[in-house]
Simulated assay, not measured.
Amino acid sequence: MHIPNRKELRRILSEERALYLGRRGRYQEILRFLKAHPDYYSWKYARRMRITCFYYGKRKNNPYYALMYLLSSRRMNMLGRKLGIEAGENVFDEGLVIYHTQGIVINGNARVGKNCRLYGNNCIGNDGIHAACPIIGDGVRICVGAKVIGDVHIANHVVVAAGAVVVKSCDVEHAVLAGIPAKVIAIEEQSKRFLD
């Protein structure tokens, strides 16, 4: 994802903050901080990822941005280690929501579209033989324990069911993928309304 300027960065941060903390503003953020709520820490990670992505795009033009990229990347990775998240800063398009943080491993070469939902214990990466990584469309939900592995393409608004292991591409929008290896088991009508 490329974030061209600070105005766009602020817009993305504002929209994603509402996804994690609700639209009640500072009250929700303080309350969730005091409770050490998982949503607060997921939001902190997503925020740091977007800031790091912004600096990443500018790092070659200015030594200041290169330094800020290194510092921000370090903060993102340190927080990720505490939360159990390993991901590149440029993988996800806007609208990402991480519901449960533990056990998330995302290869930095994978590409994931807008409004992705991760439910925890997920892996999106290469197959260990070839370097190619998944390309995932918009509005995809990757449920608990689901994995997407290898040079695969996933269409928009697909649901990868809990525990599924996707090793083949799915070009069917609104499909539900389940099993090991995953295959289409249904076309979900309800998902057509998800984030449209």
Rank of each mutant, 00 (worst) to 15 (best):
C53Y: 01
L83M: 12
I51L: 08
C53F: 00
L83K: 01
L79C: 04
L79Y: 01
V91G: 07
Y64C: 07
Y64I: 14
N61A: 11
G88V: 09
G57N: 07
M49H: 09
I85N: 01
Y56Q: 06
N90S: 09
Y56D: 09
G80A: 05
G80Y: 10
Y45A: 05
K58H: 13
A87Q: 06
L83N: 06
G80I: 09
R81D: 08
L83A: 04
N62V: 02
Y45F: 15
S73T: 11
R59M: 13
Y65M: 13
G84R: 04
K60L: 14
E89D: 10
L83H: 05
M76Q: 08
K58M: 12
Y69W: 15
R50E: 13
Y65H: 15
M49L: 15
S73Q: 07
A66T: 03
Y64R: 13
Y64H: 12
K82H: 09
L70K: 14
V91R: 03
I51Q: 07
R48N: 12
S72W: 01
L71T: 12
A87I: 03
Y69R: 01
L83Y: 05
R59I: 03
L70Y: 11
R50M: 03
M49G: 04
R81F: 06
R75A: 14
A87F: 00
R75W: 08
R74A: 12
R74P: 00
L83C: 10
G84L: 05
Y56G: 00
R50L: 06
Y69G: 05
M78C: 03
R75P: 00
R75V: 00
R50K: 10
L79W: 04
P63W: 02
S73R: 14
P63R: 03
T52W: 01
G88Y: 01
A66N: 13
Y65A: 10
N62P: 03
Y56T: 03
R75K: 13
N62L: 04
R59Y: 02
I85F: 09
Y55D: 07
P63M: 02
L70E: 13
S72K: 02
Y45P: 12
N77T: 03
N61L: 03
G57L: 11
R75S: 11
M78L: 11
K60N: 13
N90G: 06
P63F: 00
R47H: 15
N62A: 04
L70I: 10
L70G: 08
V91K: 02
M68P: 04
A46L: 08
M68S: 11
N90Y: 00
L70F: 08
R74G: 01
I85R: 12
Y55K: 02
P63E: 14
A46M: 08
G80M: 11
Y56E: 11
I51P: 07
N62S: 15
E89N: 03
K58P: 02
C53E: 13
M76F: 07
R50A: 08
A87M: 10
R75G: 04
E86P: 03
A46F: 06
